[in-house]
């Protein structure tokens, strides 16, 4: 009878290679599925519920709508810029990858702050940065 194979072979453990997983690939799928829910909800709310100025302003001072909009903002910025990153990386050499990441993180954080500033305007009646 065959012997049971040992899972923890010490020689193999020492030279255990790194198993590489593309987190950006996984998060792209994950945020894509979330976007189906969040963006679908966003479109539904903005087109089938009351869209007069006063009601939209009131709705965005409710914490649920604020929370949904902030989540949508973060997810959509990640999904969009991560997609752009994978497009750009295909046309770049490897030594430039770090610069793509730095630039795109900068753009992403700037966009999220900008979006938060717009949502801030509904709570405090004026945006923080934009004049």
């Amino acid at each position: 009878m065959a012997t049971e194979s040992k899972q923890e072979n010490p020689k193999q453990e020492a030279a255990r290679p790194v198993i590489l997983v593309s987190w950006s690939w996984m998060l792209q799928r994950f945020t894509g599925i979330l976007l189906l829910v969040f963006l679908g909800g966003h479109l539904w709310v903005e087109h089938f519920m009351n869209t007069t100025t006063r009601v939209v302003s009131l709705r965005l001072t409710h914490w649920i709508y604020t929370f949904l909009d902030i989540s949508l903002l973060i997810i959509v910025v990640y999904h969009g810029l991560n997609g752009l990153r994978s497009i750009v990386r295909e046309r770049m050499i490897r030594s430039h990858f770090i610069w793509i990441d730095i630039v795109l993180w900068g753009i992403g954080i700037f966009t999220i702050i900008w979006g938060l500033d717009i949502l801030w305007a509904f709570w405090y009646h004026h945006p923080f940065f934009v004049v």
Binding site: Q12, R16, P17, V18, I19, L20, S22
Partner: peptide, 9 residues
């Protein structure tokens, strides 16, 4: 393990 480290790169 060796194969996965190549195909996962």
């Amino acid at each position: 393990d060796q194969r996965l480290s190549v195909v996962g790169a």
